[in-house]
Amino acid sequence: MIPLSGDIGNAKGIVRENTGSFETHRGTSTLKRGFAHMLKNGVVMDVTTVEQAQIAEDAGAVAVMVLDKLPADVRKAGGVARTASIRIIEEIMDSITIPVMAKCRIGHVYEARVLAETDVDMIDESEVLTPADEFHHIWKWDFTTPFVNGARNLGEALRRIEEGAAMIRTKGEPGTGNVAEAVIHIKNVNSELRRIKSVYDSGDEQDLVSIARELKVSYSLVEDTASLGRLPVVNFAAGGISTPADAAYLMTLGCDGIFVGSGIFKSDDAKERAQAVVLATTFWEDPDKVKEAQKMVDERQSMLGLDTKNLELRMQERGSTA
């Protein structure tokens, strides 16, 4: 089981107050990471309009992620991609009952502040948008609102967790309709986790210290993660998922759930596809049910997709060295 504790001593995002006759705490790790735990085995869908958000909710999405443009359109449009219009985020929050997330630019502390004030349920500090700070991510402990971050390997994942991320997702290669990169990222994380677990089990602390240096994170976080044998927060797959079988495959690799970006609303059968991806994620262990889900979609309606080898823009590389 994943532990929920992990607060740093002076997390400014924790609010202590009196509510009537009770003393309450908001913004603790238990609440932020706990929120992510409630999403497990679910599908978070990228949306740009109220109509899409309603389709997502009706299909059984566990949350929606609001963007100005779907990642495939960001790729096409070029220019600078920023956080979505606040007015649209608010309209979506007022029209559905499931959690609403939104993306801010990497390192853009004030886009994140604005989203927190808007009261979104989770902020995605995302490589899909144009980074605002090449060298620093947001110090997420300062926020009461939880964050999710992308990662391609264990080092990135642990650095984001050390900055206060309450949830991790693979980066994949967004907007390509191609799961190949997400598969690589989750396998990278899994194999590095196996490595540090075996070092931990062998009792070789010196080797664990050198791993912490290599990953550029604190020894204590590496030690905790190694003892768990998994990331200390919920870990979803994201980037290029387009079909029910894509979602089910990533679940078999040990992901806790799925983000679908362009895959649904850049297809020509969005409604059926949204339902089918949810079904395949829920019942991923049952090939017959995944087949039924896959049957609900028509491959001729899938987004065309891109080969990830010759891309002009590799979104996954954004913020990866920080």
């Binding site: 705490h25 908001r26 706990g34 409630m38």
Partner: peptide, 28 residues
């Protein structure tokens, strides 16, 4: 109780089933 930012923890009691103090974790 509101959206995620308003999620909270507080000590409750469930005296009727013999639990005098229990940490309530309220998430949305």
């Amino acid at each position: 109780f509101g959206r995620q930012k308003d999620s909270f923890e507080a000590d409750l009691s469930l005296e009727k089933i013999g639990i005098s103090k229990f940490r309530g974790v309220f998430i949305r």
